[in-house]
Structure formats: structure tokens, C-alpha cells
Computed example of a mutant assay.
Amino acid sequence: MLEVTALPLDELRERTSEKWREYPDDVLPLFVAETDFPLAPEITAALQRALDAGDTGYVASRTPLAASYAAFAQRRFGWQVDPERIRTTADVSMGIVEILRRVTQPGERVVVMPPIYPPFFDLVEEAGADVVRVPLRDTGAAWEMDLDGIRAALEDGASAVLLCNPHNPTGTVHAREALTALGEVAEEFGVAVVSDEIHAPLAQPGTGFTPFLEAGDAARRVGYAVVSASKAFNLAGLKCALMVTADDTTGAVVRSLPIEVEWRTGQFGSIAASAAFSEASDAWLDGLLHTLDANRMLVGDLLSERIPQARYRIPDAGYLAWIDLSALGWGDAPARRILKDARVAVSSGPTFGTEGAGHVRLNFGTSPEILTEAIERIAALVGR
């Protein structure tokens, strides 16, 4: 395991990505899902080789990426993926839209489970379908899928389910049994399940992460997984995602997508993802998970000490903290006050659905020092 630590703030402010250009320098940006760590060494080396060779043309029809991901899935999840059942595209959102266009008709309905990554609502619309909301259930100890609610939506005519596994923003790793049941009810009604698994490499050890296509025979027959190295390895700007299937019928659907869907894959994205999924990057990923484990606990400790009114459940995966600040009386969208008065940018809860009222999403993929200062700034507003 390598030690993975965030870059200093002055170096981070030299970056030109969205996280570091949206707000002035007096704002601590903990909103968009970018991280503050250096790239994994294998990725840097692979990209440098490409630059040195001027290897900046179109992505090839044959690359090592599918085999690299299949080996990664076997090592990390015990998931046996057939490389022949993988196609690439620019990003997970594009993969979701293109698959939804194939498995739904215009005007049909797609189940989403808020609070949910805000673009899910837009992606369903982009695909020509309508959203039907089946919120996650809060048991008091965890969030879980409302399988009865999903069944009711399918009985009412919904024609697909858009799953987030692990879930954004709650960081929930869905139980294998729930995923198996979802596959079975989807098959019963003859609908597809499209599973966004972009946060899968960031599932903490011991959480029991299950890829949807590993959750049973029915899941394999109805499911499509869309995966990427972009969140774990901070590669979003390089544009590469993979669409994975485990059945002849679903595989044929993905193969039927226009070749331009695959040509939108970035050359650097493919090169970087191949390196990210290689065994040589495992030690870096293990180090990152160790750092994020400490950070997710630090958020809990800081909130308990400085903002005890906050409700926060330690996430199973990822680097996003879903925090309920309703008890502070700062309205449905406390992120506005936090930005204005504390100069900390966090994601606004209501954009994740009405279930997000009073909540914020805070990105803890940064240094303990930045996290501490951010929560101290927010705490200073309490009682004012």
C-alpha cells in the first residue's frame, strides 16, 4: 500500500478544473466530485509515454482496456467479466443515456431512487423518458432500496430502473440480497436495470460491495453496468467509461449502439484507465482507500464536536458525505448560507431531490487540514 496524501492548497489552486475555477480563492471548494490527490504513478507514466510519443490521435478499436478492467474486476470484486462484453464511451452519463435510448421508448418511465446524483433526472429526460421517483428508505441505521415501491412502479408501467451502486450521495453499498431481488423483479416485469457503478472502486474493504451483474442470474440477464476509473483515480477530464454486459441479449443491445458512441472515448482516457485498472495501481488505490477511511471518520468526529445538531452517517464507499443540517434551521438549501457566510462550497441537498431538503453533500477527498478548516468555518455560523 502506498501513502496517498492530498496536495497542498497552494498547488491545488494552480489547477484549472471546475473544482478550482468555479469560486474565488477565499472559498474552500468541497462540492464537485474531484479529489485533491496526485495521480497514481502508473497513470502519470502512461500519459507521459503517450505525450513523448505524440500518441494523441483517435482511440483505437483494439486497446488493452477491456482486458485490464476484467482483471481488475476479478481482483477487486471477485467478478468474472468477459472482455468481449465491454464497449467504451466518453463517460458514464453518456453510457447511461445511450443504453436507456435502446431499452425504453419515448415517453416511457424510468425508476430513479432519490436522493440521487442530480444529473440522473436530466439523463432520463435526455434519453426521451420520464422519471418516476422511488426514494431510498431510511431505516434509521442505513439507506436501502424500496423494493416494494419499485415493484409498484413497474406494475404501473415503468420500463427501466436506473440504479446507482454504490449510491451517490449517501455512499450506500447496496446489499447483495437487495440487488438480487431487484434483478428478479425487473426480470418478472421484463425491464432493464442500468447500474451506474462509477464509485465501485471506492467501496471500503469489508462493506461487501456487489456489482449488479454479479447479483444473480436474473441480474445478469436484465442488467447493464456502466463503470469508469474517473472517480477513484480523478480522471473525469480524460473521458472514458465502459459499458459491461453479462448476457447475449443485453450484449447485443450494447453492440447495436452506433460506432460513434465508442469513438467518443478519449485517447488519453483509454490510456489512463488501462493504467488505473492495472495491478500496478492497486497499491495506490489501497492507499487512497486508507486515506478516505480516515477522512470519513474525521468528518464524523468534527461534526460531533463542532456541529452536534448535524446528522451524518459514515458512507460505505466514495468520498462524499451526506449531511443533514435541518436542525440548524437554515432552510431547505443550507449550502447557500454556507457559501455566502462561511465561504465553503458544498453541493446543495435539494438538487438531489426533495429528500435532500436541509442537506448538503461535502467532498472529503482532500486533506484533513482543509476538512477541519471547512467544518470549523461552518460551525462558526451556528447560533448566529
Score class of each variant (00 low, 15 high):
L2E: 11
E14T: 15
S17G: 15
E18T: 14
R21N: 04
E22H: 03
D26T: 00
V27E: 01
F31E: 09
E34W: 05
A40D: 04
P41C: 11
P41L: 12
Q48W: 00
D52T: 08
G57F: 02
A60K: 10
R62D: 13
P64L: 06
F77M: 01
T89R: 02
D91K: 03
D91E: 09
R101N: 01
F120H: 14
V124S: 06
R133D: 09
V134D: 10
P135Y: 09
L136K: 13
A142K: 15
D146C: 09
L154R: 07
E155A: 12
L162D: 01
N168G: 05
T170H: 05
T172P: 06
V173Y: 01
V173I: 06
E177K: 12
A192L: 00
H199M: 12
A200R: 03
L202S: 10
G206C: 12
G206V: 12
D217Y: 09
R221Q: 11
V222S: 09
V222T: 13
S228W: 13
L238R: 02
R255A: 15
I259Q: 12
R264S: 09
G266P: 06
G266Q: 06
G269I: 06
A275D: 02
A275I: 04
A280Y: 04
D286P: 00
D293G: 14
D293F: 05
V299K: 01
R311Q: 11
R311H: 10
I314K: 12
A317D: 10
Y319T: 02
A327F: 05
A327V: 03
W330C: 08
P334A: 05
A335Q: 08
R336G: 03
R337L: 11
A342K: 10
A345P: 01
A345R: 02
S347T: 13
G349I: 13
T351L: 15
H359I: 04
L362D: 08
E373G: 11
L381N: 06
R384F: 00
